[in-house]
């Protein structure tokens, strides 16, 4: 969905536009909650609560075009609070397997690249929620450090250090999986 279209739907805020926003964002919102919680039912509840909270508080959104990122923050905050409140060991019911597809049509280079991406995917799952949150906001929603800081209501320095630690942890995870492979991070604070 185009940014202008999202902003228009947010401004309308009637049932029809809410449904359209839900359709456009529910999958990725659920994915954010699921990746923090690793339980389908709880992730569904958090997704539900995140949309209710978002639609009830749309006037708090300062930039309509950032609805998706704002919703991701709400969902991840709810999931983080849930984890903290439950203080329990999360037993994953993760049935998802890596969708590597059939590599028959891929060149060796493409197949190798696919494997590397899947390793990064797995490594991302090991990030603590507060690091996962900033990684999603920077790399999926393409937000700048200052924008993330505003959404999370923290100092830009906090965002930078969370991003740094997240990339460091990802690199460490990949190193473990890939033996003594050389790991580099671009470390792109924007």
């Amino acid at each position: 969905m185009e940014v202008e279209q999202i902003a228009a739907l947010v401004r309308q805020n009637d049932n029809e536009s809410r449904r359209a926003l839900f359709e456009a964002f529910y999958r990725r919102t659920y994915a954010v909650a699921y990746n923090i919680l690793r339980r389908r039912e709880t992730a569904e509840d958090i997704t539900q609560d995140a949309f209710i909270k978002a639609f009830s508080s749309l006037h708090q959104l300062q930039d309509d075009s950032k609805f998706g990122a704002w919703l991701a923050v709400i969902a991840s905050n709810l999931a983080r609070n849930y984890l903290k409140r439950e203080k329990r060991i999360i037993l994953t019911d993760d049935e998802q397997t890596l969708h590597m597809g059939t590599n028959a049509d891929l060149t060796e280079e493409e197949a190798l690249r696919g494997l590397e991406i899947d390793m990064v995917r797995e490594a991302i799952k090991t990030l603590p929620p507060e690091q996962y949150q900033v990684i999603v906001l920077q790399y999926y929603h393409d937000l700048k450090v200052e924008e993330i800081a505003t959404l999370l209501k923290v100092q830009p320095g906090t965002v930078k250090s969370r991003l740094f630690r997240a990339r460091q942890k990802l690199a460490g995870q990949l190193e473990l999986k890939n033996g003594s492979a050389c790991l580099m991070s671009e470390g792109g604070d924007r």
Binding site: F22, Y30, T47, Q96, V120, R121, Y140, L174, M184
Partner: peptide, 30 residues
């Protein structure tokens, strides 16, 4: 065999992860 963690790889991994997730029924959730 060297694996370089790049911003682009993180980006692709997240997109792939979000596409792979099996969300609950949209109608039920809505």
């Amino acid at each position: 065999n060297k694996l370089a963690l790049t911003d682009d790889m993180i980006k692709q991994a997240l997109h792939r992860e979000f596409e792979a997730v099996t969300p609950p029924s949209a109608d039920h959730l809505w």
